[in-house]
Design a protein around this nucleic acid. Sequence first.
DNA 1: GCGACATAGATGCAATAGCATGTACCTGCT
DNA 2: AGCAGGTACATGCTATTGCATCTATGTCGC
Lengths: 153, 153
Amino acid sequence: MSDLTDLPSPVPPSVTAAWIGLMRAQRIVLAAIEADLKAAGLPPLGWYDVLLELARATEGRLRPFEIEKRTLLTQYNLSRLIDRLEGKGLVQKALSGEDGRGRWVVITQDGRAMQARMWAVYSRALSDHVGRKLDESSADALASLLAKLTDGG
Amino acid sequence: MSDLTDLPSPVPPSVTAAWIGLMRAQRIVLAAIEADLKAAGLPPLGWYDVLLELARATEGRLRPFEIEKRTLLTQYNLSRLIDRLEGKGLVQKALSGEDGRGRWVVITQDGRAMQARMWAVYSRALSDHVGRKLDESSADALASLLAKLTDGG
DNA sequence: GCGACATAGATGCAATAGCATGTACCTGCT
DNA sequence: AGCAGGTACATGCTATTGCATCTATGTCGC
């Protein structure tokens, strides 16, 4: 009886190494950053992503489906994340005039303050866990290699 | 009142770009691979990681804490994942003679078969979502840049 | 051998993610 | 206008995760 695991893989070792490295690096760095946020008594990174998009948007507001595209959050997770943000007073929901199906999610002053407080910790964590390990040209090179993975096709 | 978000970030743009690229690439590729597994009626990637480690281990068995180190799973998640694997007959738990606290997790024949079935799909997905987008030298370069992020310090 | 502390693993409970579906509204066709 | 289908968002239910803690055993110093 042959064992498929013994057959030579059609996947070049460099490709598996890249993939495993991608998973490991993302998990390890993300865990480190989340730990720093938690140690500072701040909410998880997902909150930051939403707050940042809102803070950058004109009039500090976006439709949920716009946030969804920008953040890669799923529709149902975003729906509930917005509820939590609203529960903490960081955003408000408003009815959309133009589209009766839609809602606006509007960032509050507390929301902007939270985004800034989180960035203070987040940016330090980024410097620490990414910047300290890659010089700028390596970081550029990494970013452009990663972009190849997500570009269309 | 100053707004921290307007202060120049201490983080170089290349570093943020690398980090955002890392998050995006990992999420997108992982989601694509998980989708392929699911479409084939197979369990998620976490199962594969554990089964592969067991399949590679001598006598097809490892202690939970050994699996934990190899996979980056947390202790409590692994404990429950093993329960699920056992529930499907893919592994068995056995008492450890040497260390009364310990258990052995032993892969079954069904477990080996599942690992092989998953690899068939997984390897195709890897070729498709990673190999097809990176030539081998790019993949090597990516792997070594990523390694810098996880190396000590 | 006993007590203090560490390690291996399990587990109750609360929070979050995933899935399927529901509701409301929109758009386009007839 | 009326219906078919699509989009935007919410939600009930289940599965998984995270956290804190528990049990059991091991190790070390005395």
